[in-house]
Design a protein around this nucleic acid. Structure first.
Length: 479
DNA sequence: GTTAGGG
DNA sequence: CCCTAAC
């Protein structure tokens, strides 16, 4: 049992529950301060509201409730049962707790507001809380069914290892049990809590493989194992909650018994994803989208890394499916942003010097050896890929042919040439085109030779291989 | 990996 | 400038 563990923080060693709780609080706050912080928002609110419902009226209890934001169930159980609440305050470790948990009060206010809106002051708050989830996850739960399950689980929770309980339902049952025990007798609740404690532990160990079938929970399962040994109750519950939340999202009807689980707040999700990113645990789906986002700016330097292929759209979208609607929007936004930026990132105009360089390169190496030309003549300009050189050459041929054509026809269409090249360059291009006809492209030279415009295509395609220089790339490569 | 061809 | 097929 966990109670045997170093009770340095406990002033009343007789209280087994508090021992475990305190013990768990110590490391938990240090290691998973943020996680605990957010995860505990829910239990706290529940506890507080329960406190109101049952009108315990103990000031110290209320105070304690505000301060102690760990495992709702256990905390409550021993509090009521042993009445050792006062001992918590003033303990050395409480300062740390207060620091960490203090920030929770703000968020708790949120939850309190929600409760007020739902008019939870009645004794049926449990049910209202339960109904809250069916509303949000209508496909998962149906109100009455949940309620019945809740009661069953709570009553069954005395027998640990109840295989009927799903993983997600464990904590739920524990919570409910505590609340019921509060209303009936604290001692029983205490015992129940003990049992729950064991139950959760044992069941979590057993259920870990099952959870692995669910995608995001794989990490959680690991957390389970870790926390089972190292971190006591709080962290354990925390991880358990994590699993539950993920299960709730991914799996549906099979895990209906997760009633007490509140939908994680937006802030929690964000924080969680952030933590996951830093800690290397991809517990949240959003992490991916964030990573994608961060990739965008880094691509601006080199064209070489054309990210379009790197970004498979289908994969992107499928990831979005599993996350919430908000993240879905984000995904869409990101995708739009990326596609808009990726396509035609920078249209670098070809300078005259570059054109001349290209022409020289072609004259030197021939048409088709674009990589060679790029390496030798455009090594400095990383943004010019061999494909770019080829495209440019293609365009040059076209324009030069147009030039020729225009001249032939009386220079009527000169204005169509957006960036007219110097005559010398055009002449060179034409010469090169004659010597190195672009494969399958309509060589201006040939086209001029061939008076019949309709037969240009055929003539060129046939003429290219015939060319004595063998400038056709394919033929060249074969050499 | 490179190139041709089309968009 | 980008994409894809072909090599």
């Amino acid at each position: 049992m966990r109670t045997e563990r170093k009770p340095h923080l406990i002033k009343k060693p007789a209280d087994a529950k508090r021992q475990s709780v305190d013990e768990s609080l110590g490391p938990g706050l240090k290691d998973e301060a943020t996680e605990v912080e957010h995860l505990l928002v829910e239990p706290k609110s529940e506890r507080v509201s329960v406190d109101r419902v049952f009108c315990f009226g103990k000031e110290n209890i209320e105070k304690h409730l505000k301060m102690e934001d760990f495992s709702c169930a256990f905390d409550y159980g021993w509090k009521i049962g042993s009445g050792g609440l006062d001992s918590i305050h003033g303990q050395g470790g409480d300062d740390l707790k207060l620091e960490v948990l203090d920030g929770l009060l703000d968020e708790v206010d949120e939850v309190d507001d929600i409760q007020a809106a739902h008019d939870l002051s009645s004794a049926c708050e449990d049910f209202l809380l339960d109904i809250e989830f069916p509303e949000k996850f209508s496909e998962l739960d149906c109100g009455p069914h949940v309620g019945s399950n809740l009661r069953n689980s709570s009553s069954e929770s005395h027998s640990p290892g109840g295989s009927s309980n799903s993983v997600g339902g464990m904590s739920e049952s524990s919570i409910v049990t505590v609340q019921e025990s509060n209303s009936k007798n604290g001692v029983l609740g205490k015992m129940v809590n003990c049992d729950i404690h064991h139950t959760i532990r044992s069941e979590c160990g057993c259920q870990a493989p099952v959870m692995e079938t669910i995608r995001p929970s794989k990490e959680h399962a690991q957390d389970f194992v870790e926390s089972d040994d190292e971190k006591p109750l709080v962290s354990f519950i925390v991880s358990n909650k994590k699993v539950k939340s993920s299960i709730k999202v991914t799996k549906g009807g099979t895990l209906l018994r997760q009633k007490r689980l509140r939908k994680p707040t937006k802030r929690y999700i964000e924080e969680f994803s952030r933590n996951s990113t830093t800690s290397g645990k991809n517990k949240c789906l959003k992490v991916r989208s964030q990573e994608e986002f961060s990739q965008v700016p880094s691509e601006s330097q080199s064209r070489r890394g054309r990210p379009k292929k790197i970004m498979p759209k289908m994969e992107f979208e499928s990831d979005c499916e599993l996350s919430a609607s908000e993240s879905e929007d984000e995904c869409k936004r990101t995708k739009r942003f990326k596609t808009a930026c990726d396509r035609r990132k920078h249209q670098r105009m070809w300078t005259l010097a570059e054109v001349i360089k290209l022409v020289d390169g072609i004259a030197q190496y021939g048409v088709g050896r674009w990589t060679d030309i790029k390496k030798l003549l455009f090594a400095s300009s990383a943004y010019r890929t061999p494909v770019d050189l080829r495209d440019k050459w293609r365009n040059l041929l076209r324009s030069s042919s147009a030039h020729k054509h225009n001249r032939k026809e009386g220079e009527t269409n000169v204005k169509h040439c957006v960036r007219p090249l110097p005559k010398t360059v055009v002449c060179r291009i034409r010469e090169l085109a004659t010597i190195h006809p672009y494969p399958k492209a309509r060589s201006p030279n040939l086209s001029s030779i061939n008076s019949d415009p309709s037969s240009k295509q055929l003539t060129t395609t046939k003429a290219a291989p015939i060319n004595t220089h063998g400038r056709n790339l394919r033929g060249k490569k074969c050499n």
